[in-house]
Design a protein around this nucleic acid. Structure first.
Lengths: 237, 237
DNA sequence: AGCACTAAATGAATAGCATTCATTTACCAG
DNA sequence: CTGGTAAATGAATGCTATTCATTTAGTGCT
């Protein structure tokens, strides 16, 4: 909303396209929240390919170079996005529901948020948590949930990292085309795989007959997640 | 090796830097195998940032535009890399060892190969297997191993996808800096997480005292993988 | 009040990127 | 020998992130 309202709010009653003259404006036009919101808006309209510094500047009605007063590089914009999106992940189960249910809710929510933002995954994976306060807050909530559920302290981080790895990998799956496993003309040389693909496709269709959309990625995610949850659950003291 | 030997093998005895004149050469300079090898060489020296079409052309002693007679776009180069690397993944356990051991070998090898090539992961995840014969061959071997180990056919693909998701996510972890979880100045506001990070760090150090390098990523990978293997093992008929 | 300093904008410039195109040359099929 | 196709060069294109000089506004000091 800062992005949209940036078009208004100028003291002169000029029409939209009028350019700002050089020099520092009386009220700052840009801030990190506005940049984040504009980036999100841009991504939802044009995808990550459309997220260029020039396009972002245009969305904010600003010269591209102005962005560099607020971020050191494009990577910082991705970092702002990452931290914002993390705050959308549902951690409400921890402390409120059984550990299993809390993890389930968190993991599905986490995967769904980043399935729409897979280009951020390489950024997150290498990102020191210091630079991302919301992300750190999520880890704190989740860690607390694990410890209070009886996990030995030294197992908490490995357990979370294992879950997160699975979640990030699964987020990519969501974006894959449905026919990704169609082996085409080479089907004859891969009989076991081809048969397995066919039978899992029909099984997924059957399982989702109850109304919910059962995409292949969901089947695999559910399978892996439930195995991890029950396996990890056994580690609690 | 095609990349290195490309420098030699010209009929004229000219010194290295001499330019080829325009027009089709008597013997083709480029082919997909050579492009793949040159790309690998380049990546190992300069990393993925150094893998540009211009640099690749230079490595092959060719004009950049020449590459486009063999690949339609840079993405095709990444695809060549992906398929080549997949052929390096160790599937020798399937059919030779117990299912658990075969999966363990495969998963560690798969993770290690792509940990060095994380920029390819977004490519693989969306890649129809039709375009990658080596990858398809790997799936066939693994599928066969699963079916012969007693898996119900419709569970094979979800099981493999779940494992793969975990593997790809874990490959990113390997590249993360060791201090990625140091919460720095915000440590006081995240007591549970901070404590968990500290105790897992010392536990990992202890566990690896036997000589082997026990990086944090390895601890989490082992944990998750063993849980998945034993959970999946229970699905066999 | 006047003055230095800093912050936040513009606009012009830069280097590097993937990709395209016209052109040249070599081989092959008729 | 003659057309067509494949594979190279070299020049050009448009887009990219980023930098820099410049302008202007506000803040703190004396």
């Amino acid at each position: 909303m800062p992005a949209a309202s940036a078009a208004q709010g100028r003291s002169t009653g000029d029409v939209g396209v009028r350019r700002r003259r050089a020099g520092r404006p009386s009220a700052a036009v840009l801030d990190k929240a506005g940049i984040t919101a504009a980036a999100l808006e841009l991504i939802s309209r044009k995808g990550y390919d459309g997220l260029t510094m020039a396009a972002l500047a245009k969305q904010l009605e600003v010269a591209p170079s102005a962005l560099y007063n607020h971020v050191a590089a494009k990577r910082d914009v991705l970092l702002l996005l990452e931290d914002h999106l993390t705050s959308l992940v549902d951690v409400s189960g921890f402390g409120a529901a059984a550990w299993e249910d809390a993890v389930r809710t968190w993991a599905w929510s986490y995967r769904n948020v980043f399935a729409e933002h897979t280009p951020l995954i390489p950024v997150i994976a290498v990102l020191p948590v210091t630079d991302a306060p919301q992300t750190l807050a999520m880890y704190e909530t989740v860690s607390k949930g694990f410890i209070e559920a009886g996990f030995p302290q030294e197992q908490v981080v490995p357990a979370i990292v294992a879950l997160e790895s699975f979640i990030f990998g699964s987020a990519y799956d969501v974006t894959a085309p449905e026919d990704i496993f169609e082996s085409g003309s080479l089907a004859e040389s891969t009989p076991h795989f081809t048969a397995a693909v066919r039978s899992s496709a029909s099984a997924a269709g059957w399982a989702s007959a109850g109304g919910e959309r059962g995409r292949p990625a969901d089947t695999a995610f559910k399978l892996g997640l439930e195995l991890l949850i029950s396996g990890l659950g056994a580690l609690r003291g």
